[in-house]
Simulated assay, not measured.
Amino acid sequence: MDDRSFDPDRALPCGRTDGMLLDFLADSAPPELAKHIPTCQDCQARLAELDSDWAPVRRTAHLPIESPHGLVERTLMAVRGVRGGRGAAPVELVQEGGKLRVSPQAVVLLTRRLCLELLAERPGVHLRGCVGDVDEVRVDLAVRYPLPAPELADAIHRELTAALGEALGAGAPQVWVRVVDVEPPRAG
């Protein structure tokens, strides 16, 4: 076969397809295909091509992968932020007809959403974490070099504090914004 591209629906002269043969290589083909292959030169030739084409993929799949620096810490921080502190009192907002209680988790999620909206307007600045409760929230950012990190952090702090104040009034938490990572500039 001259064409080494992969199309799962391409049929061989015997009626089997590349997709069926790939299932065979992945040990998920029906038993009748396993019986057919030893008797079919077309399937054997195509399997040899597929096997050699997929060998680098199989080798790569067996390589140990080291998680990116800080991934575990950022993930745990995000989970802790959404779970919130146990027993933390909710924010109570007095409204017409009664009080609205906002849980610490909702305060963190609101902060995260508002921050992501602010960052959507700022390419090169990414949210790395958002944790806290009803009293204070910490927002961790990554900024792409050479953007002015301190000025961006200050602007985001001001805008986020204002947005939370608008949403939660006097119940808005204190906001802390930190730049925890500087990313390298984009190539070319």
Rank of each mutant, 00 (worst) to 15 (best):
A89M: 14
R86T: 04
R83E: 01
I37Y: 05
L118Q: 13
H157M: 11
A172M: 00
P185R: 09
I156L: 03
L22G: 06
V179E: 00
A172F: 03
A106W: 00
V180A: 01
R4T: 15
L118C: 14
E66T: 15
L25A: 02
S52A: 15
S52T: 14
A172G: 03
L152K: 12
G97C: 02
G15D: 08
L110R: 04
V131A: 10
E73R: 15
A172L: 04
E159N: 15
V72R: 14
R158A: 14
S28Y: 00
P123E: 15
T161A: 14
R112E: 15
E117N: 12
A153S: 05
G87C: 03
G81E: 08
G188Q: 11
L76F: 05
V182R: 13
L127I: 10
A142K: 10
L22I: 08
D154Q: 07
D2V: 12
L50E: 11
A29W: 02
D3G: 13
V108K: 03
G84K: 01
R83L: 13
D2W: 11
L110A: 01
Q41L: 13
L25S: 10
V180G: 09
L93F: 01
V139H: 00
L93A: 04
A170P: 03
R178D: 15
V102A: 04
V102M: 01
D42Q: 06
V143Q: 11
P104C: 02
A153Q: 01
R158V: 12
M1E: 07
K99G: 04
L76S: 03
A61R: 15
E121R: 15
C14E: 10
A149Q: 08
G81A: 10
D2P: 15
V175I: 01
C115D: 12
P30C: 08
C43G: 00
V107W: 01
G188Y: 10
D3R: 06
P30F: 02
H126W: 02
A26L: 06
R128H: 11
